[in-house]
């Protein structure tokens, strides 16, 4: 039996007068890959930005209902500590341009002023870069700036950066949409390996990508959760006709 790590309860959110998410009820399972799918503007990104409370950075943002991380409401937690438990990888690879590859992996520690011993640092960097299968490629040039890597390498570096803080969940917001097919496959393979240790929630536009890697799929349409379930079921026998239309490419 899979245990639940995250639970949305009657959750709505939006900006100003615009209601983006409408009464979402959703349970995310631990150490699985959950794909959030849906056409543009359906609230996918808003949904995952609510999980680490990045949504609140927008001054007009509001929310109703609750999200529980391990049965504790995230809105009662300090967002700073919450974000150390929930890593995030953005659409465009964005390593810090002023830091080296080595420092980029440790960015979470450096920015937060957490002091580590030299050996601990080396270990974290090596472990995380190995996890994202980047170690072999960059181990001789860790002093280079993170931005000097290729797009796919940069994105893997960003994943390593969020892994370095040992998060419980990693949120990925269309992490491969700006990458070439080869890098995309590399990242997909990587995510499959990572799910042994961490829960992954990925927003994707790419239906075949979701079918390749996801254990669970949530289908959002116009801010509503239309269908949620195991990915085999959603892709083979969707219950809702809207889901079927989307998956078969009738709209998107």
């Amino acid at each position: 039996m899979e245990s639940k790590i995250l639970k949305f309860e009657n959750f709505s959110a939006g900006y100003g007068n615009l209601l983006v998410l409408k009464n979402i009820n959703l349970e995310i399972f631990e150490k699985k890959i959950t794909a959030i799918m849906g056409p543009s503007g359906c609230g996918k990104t808003t949904l995952i930005r609510c999980i680490n409370r990045m949504h609140e950075l927008n001054k007009e943002a509001f929310h109703k209902g609750d999200i529980f991380l391990n049965d504790k409401s995230i809105f009662e937690m300090n967002p700073v500590f919450l974000r150390r438990k929930i890593g995030m990888v953005f659409q465009k690879p964005n390593p810090f341009p002023h830091l080296s590859i080595y420092e980029n992996v440790l960015a979470g520690y450096i920015i937060n002023g957490i002091k580590l011993k030299r050996e601990e640092k080396d270990k974290i960097v090596e472990d995380c870069l190995k996890k994202v299968a980047l170690w072999e490629e960059v181990k001789d040039k860790l002093y280079l700036k993170g931005t000097q890597l290729s797009g796919g390498q940069q994105q893997r570096l960003c994943i390593a950066r969020s892994l370095a803080l040992n998060p419980e969940i990693i949120l990925l917001d269309e992490p491969t949409s700006s990458l070439d097919p080869k890098s995309t496959v590399e990242i997909e393979n990587l995510l499959e390996k990572l799910k042994d240790n961490v829960t992954i929630i990925i927003v994707t536009h790419n239906i075949s990508q979701a079918s390749r890697i996801a254990d669970y799929v949530a289908f959002l349409y116009l801010g509503e959760l239309i269908e949620y379930g195991k990915s085999e079921k959603i892709f083979t026998a969707p219950e809702n006709p809207k889901t079927e239309e989307y998956l078969s490419g009738k709209f998107g």
Binding site: V80, R83, K85, G87, F90, N94, I111, R161
Partner: peptide
């Protein structure tokens, strides 16, 4: 995006200003 990334790594806003 740099500010956002820094915040998403669990750093406070003042730290983001001084360290990023």
């Amino acid at each position: 995006s740099m500010i956002e990334t820094s915040l998403s790594l669990g750093s406070s806003y003042p730290r983001t200003i001084f360290k990023v």
